[in-house]
Nucleic acid binder design. Sequence first.
DNA 1: CGACCGTTTGATAAATGTCAATTCTAGTGG
DNA 2: CCACTAGAATTGACATTTATCAAACGGTCG
Lengths: 247, 247
Amino acid sequence: MSSQPQLSHSECSDCPIRHRAVCARCEPQELGELEVIKYYRSFEAGQTIIWSGDQMNFVGSVVSGIASLTQTMEDGRTQMVGLLLPSDFVGRPGRENAPYDVVATTDLVMCCFRKKPFEDLMARTPHIAHRLLEMTLDELDAAREWMLVLGRKTAREKIASLLSIIARRDASLTKRGLSGPIVFDLPLTREAMADYLGLTLETVSRQISALKKDGVIHLEGKRHVTVPDMGRLMEEAGDDADGGFLV
Amino acid sequence: MSSQPQLSHSECSDCPIRHRAVCARCEPQELGELEVIKYYRSFEAGQTIIWSGDQMNFVGSVVSGIASLTQTMEDGRTQMVGLLLPSDFVGRPGRENAPYDVVATTDLVMCCFRKKPFEDLMARTPHIAHRLLEMTLDELDAAREWMLVLGRKTAREKIASLLSIIARRDASLTKRGLSGPIVFDLPLTREAMADYLGLTLETVSRQISALKKDGVIHLEGKRHVTVPDMGRLMEEAGDDADGGFLV
DNA sequence: CGACCGTTTGATAAATGTCAATTCTAGTGG
DNA sequence: CCACTAGAATTGACATTTATCAAACGGTCG
């Protein structure tokens, strides 16, 4: 419905995620091989990209937009287990079926490869395999970081942790740095935040109101956030204000 | 203190984790190269193997015993973010400092490699790099599975989930299968279970008592557990009794 | 025997969830 | 341009779960 840019003839060399995605380490010649087998797909906000249990016949990278990985229990309880940002990789070489739902949280563009050709290429291209290992290890660290949030933090700390992650990512994209106020738009609904944090949407709403009342954040509308003091926000998150390690 | 078997001259070919560890895919000649640089280290229950933030100068595999990865907040709240069983890998090639504490939960033997030689060997041995990627992806899946437990399950479901994981692992080691009663010893104190599940030890204790009262498990002493009906336990864990995917 | 550690159990408090009513906001069609 | 509507978000009252604090138990090791 929404008019999306047609990207099917973009060159890898111009790609916005060229230096961070699974292809980051590739030599020009290797990039050429990827270029031949890649194709773009666009998804609208809310669309499910992959259903848990489905056969995965492609893998790919998020080029723009945000996707989420979610698990659902039989009674409907859901937990988001990952947030996929531009350059993040979807799919697992060597695995047949998807272990979680992958849902487009915003409008989304992905750079895809059919699974088999990608696996073949990876088998003979250590630069790709090596980069994928590196990215997977980073994701594992992030997942474990998140386990601390889910297991031990209070609702207020959980909200502060999530805002702090989004704020840091945003600061790193816009290269504005972490000193001075940070301004960004929340890419998630209250319900999506609740699913990420293991809370109800009412608790999310209350804690956001509380952080606002206490001056930790300012809100314009529901989604537009200003963080006047990043150090303060990180204190609220229960993190060491200096020792942040993920960028 | 405790008299531990001296393993320093064991052969890789006899190694109990030969087929599951990072060396699983190695050819005999590659194994020989590992053999040259490997060395064994033993740790007693309770000992901290690596402190968070410390420089990592080795990597390695758990040969026997159990270790845990834990994160600690400034105020002392701790969350276990991983349980390392025999064949699991510790350490990250390409990273200088340890992101979490690694603690020996039981007496432990590890097969270690100094980091630099291992990295060099890995760089020229795709079988190792490939196996490490595979293992890391499995760990990522396990971490995400655990995020659902931490974020959305009740205390009772959390306990049942933990017991079910230990029971399945045990059944797979002893090759007794999942039909019929399963018997095992808990390798964790109540406090360690609490740290893993994001609960207090009191809540752990109460829920174990409740599961016992309801006949889901039997206890002899504090640690020796019998699960008369694995399907029942998995129901209590909130998992689909048939669709378990991790073994 | 006595001290200690891990564990259990009880009473109570605090945090978060649940249910329900409103408010806000963006978009739609008259 | 302006109601009208649907979805998102907020807020309130109350219920439930889990944490906290405290006491006591049981086995093990000196």
